[in-house]
């Protein structure tokens, strides 16, 4: 598959009164055409900021994408674009689905207007053509009576229905990449299943690449082909879903997998949590940021941050002891 997106040494920082927050601290990854990639991690690990940086949606000040970062989308250098050029990419070739379907639609405009405006702008359609396509899109995302619904306002829609509208909006301009930031976190589990199923089918059908940002390890296991695990602004492990879940090599990945209760195993086993708290991103030292919580930490971990190394076929992990670690060790250690 040809490469669609290349992110190279992306660093995004926020300058605050408390110091500089290194929200994203040198991440490198690629997304191929039509591929589904999940970025997982806990609050504050930089997964959202990393994705927002792709669309240059970081407010400056206080935010800044540091010199030396590179984002190339379909051969174009995103960071070198003028404001007019990036506006053309946003909502056009790359679109976004946000977590909050309540706040990401304009409450005083009808759904129809919000859908057609985008298409008239990006695709240069006329009003009647855009109207026709809006009806078609709402039907595609499973909203009944689309003609009537187009005249309604966001508050007439339930949370799940609003998220369907967001997906219709994201698909409306034939994007090549959709970035979905916690698309189902605000929804109930049966609605979450409907929405994720819908996104999977539509992106497959239309050959759109998808980056899903989530903290839910179950969602990743069900829907993603490739997984990137982030901790404190860096990528600590990445590989296929099967590699990351069944042969994790980074202590944080192992810790995460041991922390989640599983519905399909019988009760009685105690969870093995990761002790301690995630680090303060203004006070990172030169060593591995996971070191204080890691049960395998050695002296070398304090001296430098381990580079990402190949640990399997296409799987990488950033740990000095990555080759020694196995999942089942965690429960006996």
């Amino acid at each position: 598959m040809p490469k669609l997106l290349e992110v190279e040494n992306l660093r995004t920082q926020f300058h605050t009164t408390e110091g500089t927050v290194k929200a994203v601290d040198g991440i490198t990854y690629e997304v191929s055409e039509g591929e589904t990639v999940a970025i997982v991690g806990e609050s504050g690990c930089g997964k959202s900021v990393g994705a927002m940086s792709i669309l240059r949606l970081i407010p400056n000040p206080p935010g800044e994408i540091v010199e030396g970062s590179r984002i190339v989308f379909g051969g174009q250098d995103i960071l070198a674009m003028s404001d007019a050029e990036i506006r053309h990419v946003r909502g056009g070739q790359i679109s976004m689905v946000f977590q909050e379907p309540m706040t990401s639609l304009n409450p005083v405009l009808t759904i129809g207007l919000q859908l057609t405006e985008t298409m008239m702008l990006h695709l240069g359609l006329g009003q009647s053509e855009a109207d026709r396509r809006a009806v078609e899109l709402l039907g595609m995302v499973g909203i009944g009576e689309p003609e009537r619904r187009l005249k309604q306002y966001p508050h007439h829609f339930s949370g799940g229905m609003r998220q369907r509208v967001m997906i219709a909006l994201a698909l409306s301009c034939n994007p090549r990449l959709i970035i979905a930031d916690e698309p189902t976190t605000a929804l109930d589990v049966t609605i979450q299943a409907q929405i994720l199923e819908l996104m999977r089918n539509l992106t497959k059908q239309m050959g759109v690449a998808l980056i899903v940002i989530t903290h839910n390890l179950g969602v990743v296991a069900r829907y993603a082909e490739r997984v990137i695990v982030m901790y404190a602004g860096r990528i600590v492990e990445s590989g296929t879903a099967d590699q990351v879940y069944h042969h994790p090599h980074h202590p944080y990945t192992i810790g995460l997998l041991n922390s989640v209760p599983r519905m399909d195993v019988r009760r009685g086993k105690r969870l093995v949590p990761i002790e301690g708290q995630p680090p303060d991103l203004t006070r990172l030292d030169g060593g591995c940021s996971y070191r204080p919580r890691c049960r395998w930490a050695v002296d070398a971990c304090a001296r430098s941050f381990p580079a990402l190394e190949t640990v399997g076929d296409g799987q990488i992990a950033a740990c000095f002891r990555a080759h020694e670690l196995q999942l089942d060790e965690a429960s006996t250690a």
């Binding site: 339930s158 799940g160 229905m161 109930d188 589990v189 049966t190 609605i191 979450q192 299943a193 409907q194 199923e197 839910n216 390890l217 179950g218 969602v219 990743v220 296991a221 069900r222 829907y223 879903a241 099967d242 879940y245 069944h246 997998l257 989640v260 599983r262 519905m263 399909d264």
Partner: peptide, 27 residues
């Protein structure tokens, strides 16, 4: 049954083999 089937299990091998029953409509 529908509720349990909607909950994703954090294991791609288990997920690949599970039958998923999506509940239609809303509450």
């Amino acid at each position: 049954r529908a509720l349990l089937s909607a909950v994703p299990i954090p294991d791609p091998r288990v997920e690949a083999e599970r039958a998923h029953q999506t509940l239609k409509g809303e509450v």
